[in-house]
């Protein structure tokens, strides 16, 4: 029994869970998809960006970091401002863009 527990513990340690990290921004003024494409295009070019999601109705921009990389909050906020909008809130969440997207859709 002890051997089984030890084996299971070693197996669990060998596969540590890696949660995705994303920045979630609440943005004002984002009412037109054609006009908001600048946010997506500019942030997609950033080296640490793995995925990006824009939700006009929820006023949300979510950016997921590539594995092992850190998102630059100030730089991302600056890109949203350069695209013509205002960032009112910025938070780091341990979720992927896909998970954030699903959560926002569930709120409808």
């Amino acid at each position: 029994m002890k051997q089984i527990i030890a084996i299971l513990a070693l197996a669990a340690a060998a596969f540590p869970s890696v949660a995705a990290t994303s920045l979630k921004a609440t943005v004002n003024g984002m009412v037109c998809a054609f006009c908001a494409q600048g946010i997506e295009k500019r942030i997609s070019k950033m080296s640490a960006t793995k995925a990006i999601f824009v939700d006009l109705k929820k006023k949300t921009v979510a950016v997921e970091a590539k594995d092992g990389m850190t998102l630059d909050e100030k730089a991302i906020a600056a890109e949203i401002v350069e695209a013509g909008y205002d960032v009112v809130k910025l938070e780091t969440v341990q979720m992927s863009v896909a998970e954030i997207k699903a959560e926002l859709k569930a709120r409808k």
Partner: peptide, 12 residues
């Protein structure tokens, strides 16, 4: 030239 912009919670 964009002379002025107001980014509101649900409008621009």
């Amino acid at each position: 030239r964009l002379l002025g912009r107001w980014n509101l919670p649900n409008a621009q």
